Amino acid sequence: MSGLLALLDDVAGIAKIAAASVDDISAHAAKAGSKAVGVVIDDAAVTPKYVHGFEASRELPIIWKIARGSIFNKLIILLPAALLMAAFAPWLVPYLLVLGGSYLCFEGAEKVAHVVLPHDDHSGGPDGSHDIGDPAHLEETKVKGAIKTDFILSAEIMTLALSTIEAPEVWIQAVVLALVAIGITALVYGAVALIVKMDDVGLWLTQVGKLSVTRAVGRGIVKGMPYVMKLLSIVGTAAMLWVGGSIIIHSLAQIGWHAPEEFIHHYAVIAEHAVSEQWQAAVLWLATAAMDFVVGLAWGLVLVPIVTKLVMPLFGGAKEAH
């Protein structure tokens, strides 16, 4: 009897440890996912362009192909690479984060420059060319291009996620990274699928709605989606610059250069103390985010001519504009 009680006690202890581990994994996954918000918004804002111009019946299959490629990128390539880096070269993480943050700043600043500065806008087929060619071949080309772009964004997401995991156990790191990979992929491509089909939903409501209100909602959706897409693009650009600047500032502090982070914190605290107590937390966050945004935009504008004039020609051409 005493042996059975001891066994039950051991089982209870194991259950408690397992429950604690699940809590740790959930907490780490939530923290890691929240850190990647800027990249997620960018991914969701960028991906719909890859299905633009194709038949409506091909939109969801194309998104599904890209989503599968994204999962492969994250789970098969990037997750093992992240675990190896955490085990053998953890010092490399902040440097990679600086690179990832710089990429976000470049992307955001390039979009700002694209709006502000005059440019030639050549449009044609779904890929931006005037020769549409074979739709099946074009679809394959667009999917491959989307998966390549996703690889860069996924690498940023996984590196950001890895940087937030404090648990030393490799299996917890692996589970957290896998949860982040699956969760963010489902979130991004689920949102993309919803976005690209919303105009079809609106059109369907206008055609089958029995009530005038239903038909009006459908018309509103159809008319409003272009504005939603534009708003999403603006929010995505702002998020890229804010998160990119924040990543760079915090990563530089991890590397050993604390001056930028201390400067931002100093003036954010001044702004915090300039308002009543009930608003201080919000003002502190807003002031920090605003300065991170300015840093991201400034650094991105520095990178735009360097990348477009020097780096891209070395790799065989210009990047496809988002």
Results as ranks from 00 to 15, higher is better:
2 S>T: 11
2 S>H: 12
4 L>G: 02
4 L>T: 13
8 L>G: 00
8 L>F: 12
9 D>H: 14
10 D>V: 14
12 A>S: 10
13 G>K: 05
13 G>S: 06
15 A>W: 11
19 A>C: 04
19 A>G: 07
20 A>E: 14
21 S>C: 08
23 D>C: 04
23 D>M: 07
24 D>G: 04
29 A>Y: 02
33 G>K: 02
34 S>P: 00
38 G>W: 04
39 V>M: 04
51 V>C: 06
52 H>E: 15
52 H>I: 07
52 H>R: 09
54 F>Y: 10
55 E>R: 12
55 E>W: 02
58 R>G: 01
62 I>G: 02
63 I>Q: 09
63 I>Y: 10
64 W>I: 06
69 G>E: 01
73 N>P: 04
74 K>A: 13
75 L>R: 02
80 P>D: 07
82 A>L: 03
83 L>D: 00
84 L>T: 03
85 M>P: 03
85 M>Q: 00
95 Y>S: 12
97 L>T: 06
97 L>F: 02
99 L>I: 15
102 S>M: 10
106 F>L: 15
110 E>F: 08
112 V>Y: 05
113 A>R: 11
114 H>S: 11
115 V>Q: 09
115 V>S: 05
117 L>A: 11
117 L>R: 12
122 H>S: 09
122 H>V: 15
123 S>E: 12
125 G>H: 04
127 D>A: 13
127 D>Y: 05
128 G>R: 07
129 S>W: 03
130 H>C: 01
130 H>L: 12
131 D>P: 00
132 I>G: 00
136 A>Q: 13
141 T>D: 06
141 T>E: 11
143 V>L: 00
146 A>P: 06
147 I>E: 06
147 I>P: 00
148 K>T: 13
149 T>E: 04
153 L>D: 07
155 A>P: 01
156 E>N: 10
157 I>N: 01
158 M>F: 02
159 T>A: 05
160 L>V: 03
160 L>E: 04
161 A>N: 02
162 L>V: 00
170 V>Q: 08
170 V>N: 08
171 W>I: 13
173 Q>I: 00
173 Q>S: 08
178 A>T: 13
178 A>S: 12
179 L>H: 08
185 T>W: 09
187 L>K: 03
188 V>P: 06
188 V>K: 03
196 V>N: 08
196 V>K: 09
198 M>A: 15
199 D>H: 12
199 D>S: 14
214 T>F: 09
217 V>A: 15
217 V>Q: 11
219 R>C: 02
219 R>K: 15
221 I>F: 13
231 L>Q: 03
234 I>R: 11
235 V>Y: 09
244 G>P: 04
245 G>L: 07
246 S>C: 01
249 I>T: 15
249 I>H: 03
249 I>E: 08
252 L>C: 09
254 Q>R: 05
256 G>V: 05
261 E>G: 04
263 F>A: 09
264 I>E: 11
267 Y>F: 15
268 A>P: 11
269 V>F: 05
269 V>I: 15
271 A>F: 14
274 A>Y: 08
275 V>R: 10
277 E>N: 14
280 Q>V: 10
280 Q>W: 07
281 A>Q: 14
281 A>V: 08
283 V>E: 14
284 L>K: 08
285 W>E: 11
287 A>G: 07
288 T>S: 15
290 A>K: 05
291 M>V: 08
297 L>M: 13
304 V>S: 05
314 L>A: 12
317 G>M: 08
318 A>C: 01
321 A>Q: 06
321 A>M: 04
321 A>C: 02
321 A>N: 08
